[in-house]
Amino acid sequence: MPAVSMTVNGKPVSGEVEARTLLVQFLRENLRLTGTHVGCDTSQCGACVVHINGIAAKSCTTLALQCEGATITTIEGLAAADGTLHPMQEAFRDNHGLQCGYCTPGMIMSALDIVRRNGNELDEHTIREQLDGNICRCTGYHNIVKAIAAGAKTMAR
């Protein structure tokens, strides 16, 4: 089987995978990083969003081998070593930006990409438009939008 190595959440990792192994499978099954979820498996829902070299992507539509040598960040890589939450995670908690929580890791990883592309002052329309690739089946968008606006502001500090 082909070997693959990459940096995940700051740590070098490697493994042997079939060529058809998806990045999300590699993260969940080989590395046991189960914070990244599989919702639809058809690149619609966004539960599987991670950052590949700093840019948000759907890990259910990316092969592990495409990430050879890449730097990957998952939801597990956001909090500080002492457990202090990332400001965006904290904002989701403060604003009750989740109901069942299934979409939340993808929402937070996408939220950080929205900040990367649009800055820290985000209006509601921008956030809603930019969440096009993330689905919350609980329909809890109202507080997700509030959380992203608040988290983006805190990140500027």
Binding site: S43, G46, V49, I55, A56, A57, K58, T61, T62, S110, D113, I114, R117, Q130, D132, G133
Partner: peptide
Amino acid sequence: VGDPQVRNR
């Protein structure tokens, strides 16, 4: 095209 993550790839 698609959504932001799709446009990223």
